[in-house]
């Protein structure tokens, strides 16, 4: 197991290096620099700005200098916010995004597993179709629409919850979490339904039933452990996806998270911020995928030995 984790972490190093390198050159070739603006900047001002950010040096030199800083944990100064470092921006935005993603994941699990398990108990009946259809709505209603819709209903017409903010007013974290979690609820519902369907026909479940154990115990104690394996495998990528995909929700609800910084950085061509956030998020994704594989192996003993052999 440890060898498996070690080798995966080793593999992550070249992956990150390629990501950094490609991103570094990608942002520099992309049209429009960080200092272009609607009111033309005079050549003198432009030269002064470029000198401050080392942009007047050869690209290769900039690249090597960047890698050097990176090893020391310094992600450089932000182009968009003079006087602030990328480290500082990430430190300000990430905890918020992480909290939002966590709540969203809980929402997704609650709705998704609930709908999936209920549906799997009586497949191809109304008890199957109705919860699954409800969960499915999350996919065809994008956050861009679900967010404003929830705000209109619960924030404005019913006036139960705040329409924006994060930690400013009681209850303002509820709607963003639901909006972000909804998409994943649909995926989780499908996965848990399929997983449960498969498990509930297995011999050990039949044995349990034959022993006279009450049905709810069979489902909850015996069924869930095996039936949720696919869901657990999905958790890593899902959490990673929530972390990097929270931009729309953050904008709609004025949540001061990393997603907003990241996408704005791309729009602003804030080179260092784009790079910094990319490096940071991709490292996180590597870690979460790994965690999910480990957890999966632990939950599913049959896979445990294989995980050790593979890769």
């Amino acid at each position: 197991m440890w060898r498996f984790i070690g080798s995966r972490l080793l593999q992550a190093i070249p992956v990150l290096l390629v990501v950094i390198t490609v991103t570094f050159f990608l942002v520099r070739v992309a049209p429009g620099g960080p200092f272009s603006s609607e009111k033309a900047v005079t050549p003198e001002v432009k030269a002064a700005l470029e000198a401050q950010y080392r942009l007047d040096r050869p690209v290769l030199e900039q690249y090597i200098a960047y890698l050097g800083d990176l090893i020391r944990g310094d992600l450089g100064p932000s182009f968009k916010y003079p006087g602030r470092s990328v480290n500082e921006l990430i430190a300000a935005g990430f905890p918020v995004t992480a909290e939002l993603a966590l709540y969203a994941l809980l929402v997704a699990l609650l709705i998704g597993v609930g709908a999936g398990v209920v549906a799997s108990l009586r497949p191809n009946t109304a008890q199957d179709y109705i919860p699954m259809s409800a969960a499915m709505i999350g996919i065809c209603i994008p956050s861009l629409l679900l967010g404003p819709l929830l705000i209109l209903v619960f924030g404005i017409y019913l006036d139960w919850l705040p329409v924006s903010g994060w930690g400013d007013m009681p209850g303002d974290k509820i709607l963003p979490a639901i909006t972000l979690g909804a998409v994943y609820a649909a995926y989780i519902a499908r996965l848990s339904r399929a997983g449960m369907l498969e498990v509930m026909t297995q011999d050990y479940i039949r044995t349990a039933r034959a022993k006279g154990i009450p049905e709810w115990r069979v489902v909850v104690v015996h069924g869930l452990r095996g039936g949720l394996t696919p869901v657990v495998a999905f958790l890593g990528p899902a959490f990673a996806g929530l972390l990097s995909g929270s931009f729309v929700v953050e904008t709609i609800f004025q949540v001061p998270g990393l997603g907003r910084f990241y996408v704005q950085a791309a729009f602003n061509r804030d080179y260092t911020m784009i790079l910094g956030a990319t490096v940071f998020l991709s490292s996180l994704i590597v870690v979460f995928n790994l965690l999910s594989d480990v957890l999966n192996a632990w939950m599913n003993p049959r896979l445990r030995s294989r995980a050790g052999q593979n890769t």
Partner: peptide, 16 residues
């Protein structure tokens, strides 16, 4: 790992 790399690249810049 190639898939991992493509996952991590900033999609928007890539499209532009």
């Amino acid at each position: 790992r190639l898939v991992d790399i493509l996952y991590a690249l900033p999609f928007m810049i890539f499209i532009v």
